[in-house]
Deep mutational scan, measured.
Amino acid sequence: DVEPGKFYKGVVTRIEKYGAFINLNEQVRGLLRPRDMISLRLENLNVGDEIIVQAIDVRPEKREIDFKYIP
Rank of each mutant, 00 (worst) to 15 (best):
D1W: 15
K17L: 12
I65E: 01
V58R: 04
E64K: 07
G5P: 03
A20C: 06
S39L: 12
P4T: 14
V11G: 02
K68C: 08
K17M: 11
G19W: 05
V53G: 00
K68I: 09
N25V: 05
N44D: 15
I65R: 02
Q54P: 01
V53Q: 00
V11R: 13
R35K: 14
R59H: 09
K9A: 10
R33V: 05
L31I: 11
P71C: 09
I70L: 12
I56Y: 14
M37V: 04
E50D: 12
T13I: 09
V28P: 02
E43F: 08
M37W: 02
L24K: 00
R33A: 05
R14I: 07
E64P: 03
E16V: 13
V12L: 03
D36L: 04
L32R: 01
V2Q: 03
F7H: 07
R29Q: 14
N25A: 10
N23T: 13
D36S: 06
F21N: 02
K9W: 14
K6T: 07
P71K: 07
K68Q: 11
A55V: 15
K62D: 09
V58S: 08
V53D: 00
D66V: 08
I52G: 02
I52K: 07
Y18K: 05
L42Q: 03
Y18S: 05
R14H: 10
I38K: 09
D66Y: 14
I51S: 00
R35L: 07
V58I: 10
Y18D: 06
K17H: 14
V28S: 08
A20W: 03
V12Q: 00
G10N: 00
R41L: 13
V2E: 02
Q54F: 13
E43G: 10
Q27V: 13
D57R: 15
V12K: 00
G48P: 01
D1K: 15
K68P: 02
Y69N: 05
R14C: 06
L24H: 01
L32T: 01
G48W: 08
I70K: 08
E16C: 09
I56C: 06
L24C: 03
V28A: 08
R59I: 04
I38P: 09
D36V: 02
R63A: 11
D1G: 15
E26H: 15
K9F: 11
R59V: 05
I70Y: 12
E64L: 14
D1S: 15
R59N: 09
Y18T: 05
E50L: 15
N44M: 14
F67T: 02
M37L: 06
G48V: 01
A20K: 00
E50W: 15
V2M: 07
P71I: 07
I52N: 05
N46Y: 14
K6S: 09
R14S: 11
Y8R: 00
R59Y: 07
I15H: 01
N46Q: 15
P34A: 12
K6F: 08
D49V: 06
R59A: 04
I38L: 12
I70W: 13
V58F: 08
D57E: 14
Y69K: 02
